[in-house]
């Protein structure tokens, strides 16, 4: 599986091919880190950054933050707090869903949404 840095570089380079504002320097400035640090992260010489920086990178690069976090070996803070509230229930649930096909998992999240009447 592709690592976090490798994926980040690939996505950023793809965006830079059509938009120069996706250079390491400019992207680093927008997410609030040093360009040299971002460059090292991309080359795997530094571990992935904090959740906050990953969320900012996801937003800049139009990537799914949960997917970027997973590539970085992290789980978002909101998911962690959901699991911490009912750890046994969610641990059991996730283990049960582990081998379930995608369409079956999708059915679980296809709850009918209620709104304002």
């Amino acid at each position: 599986m592709e690592g976090f840095g490798e994926h980040l570089r690939e996505v950023r380079e793809r965006r830079r091919a059509v938009d120069n504002s996706f250079s390491v320097r400019q992207l680093a400035a927008r997410v609030g880190v040093e360009p040299s640090y971002l460059s090292k992260v991309e080359r795997g010489q530094q571990p992935p950054p904090s959740e906050k920086t990953i969320a900012a990178l996801a937003s800049e690069l139009d990537e799914d933050p949960d997917v970027l976090l997973a590539l970085a070996g992290k789980v978002s803070g909101d998911l962690q707090s959901i699991i911490r509230r009912r750890p046994k229930l969610f641990a059991d649930l996730i283990r049960q869903l582990k081998d379930m096909p995608d369409h079956a998992v999708l059915r679980l999240v296809r709850e009918v949404r209620d709104g304002e009447w």
């Binding site: 009918v112 949404r113 209620d114 304002e116 009447w117």
Partner: peptide
């Protein structure tokens, strides 16, 4: 069908109500 699956094509009032 879910109204949310056709968010661009249904009246905004339907999206506010949610449902199907």
């Amino acid at each position: 069908q879910h109204v949310d699956d056709h968010a661009g094509a249904v009246p905004s009032k339907w999206l506010q109500h949610g449902g199907v």
